[in-house]
């Protein structure tokens, strides 16, 4: 079964149809997604800025990772759940959306960046630079990458709502069609699905 076929099947399930056709459910899920963005990205940005030595300079990094990170992680879980629901509501169109695909790549890179930093030698020696306002180079790099990646994730996430490069929109370029995985010879069943609230 191809991924396209899997998305097609998902789009036809009762709950998926119910979610995108409901008066309020989709909007509420999306609002929850945006609201947890404030907590998750907001706190992630604060940690990144601390790693860059820009703000909260007198707060030990370990204080942020032990006291703020649990909230960040909890908000991340809610973001993922609400994000999966948003995807599930309109799976086929989202799967072929170039911004969604870009966001997925950025998310993987952000995860990789966080994992590399947390398992790397600099973080293992955190005790040595915990209270210092000036952070090691690797910490600053990790903070800078994280900031850039999360900005790209928020940006591309917002753009998923727009259908410029969708398979059912007029073709912009063969390149964009390749990224979107469009097969213009077949019909798309949720082609008319419009995202509520641009």
């Amino acid at each position: 079964m191809s991924l396209h076929a899997l998305m097609q099947w998902m789009a036809d399930t009762e709950w998926s149809v119910g979610l995108h056709e409901s008066r309020y459910a989709y909007s509420i899920v999306e609002s929850v997604h945006v609201w947890t963005l404030c907590i998750f990205v907001g706190f992630a940005v604060l940690l990144d800025l601390r790693l860059l030595g820009i703000t909260l300079k007198r707060v030990p990094v370990s204080q942020i990772t032990t006291r703020l990170l649990p909230w960040t992680k909890a908000a991340f879980v809610v973001m993922v759940i609400s994000g999966v629901l948003l995807f599930y509501a309109i799976p086929l169109r989202t799967y072929h959306n170039v911004f969604f695909r870009a966001k997925a790549v950025f998310l993987l890179l952000a995860g990789l960046n966080a994992w590399l930093f947390h398992s790397g030698p600099t973080y293992r020696r955190l005790a040595e630079w915990d209270t210092s306002p000036m952070t090691p180079r690797q910490a600053r790099l990790a903070g800078a990458f994280s900031l850039a990646l999360w900005a790209a994730i928020v940006f591309s996430g917002r753009m998923i709502a727009y259908n410029w490069f969708d398979c059912e929109s007029p073709q912009k370029s063969a390149f964009m069609d390749t990224i979107a995985g469009c097969d213009r010879s077949t019909e798309v069943s949720d082609a008319s699905t419009v995202f509520p609230g641009h």
Binding site: L37, C38, G42
Partner: peptide, 12 residues
């Protein structure tokens, strides 16, 4: 929306 994340962090 990007600024929303920053203001969210600063307020919260």
């Amino acid at each position: 929306l990007l600024a929303l994340a920053v203001i969210g962090g600063a307020v919260l």
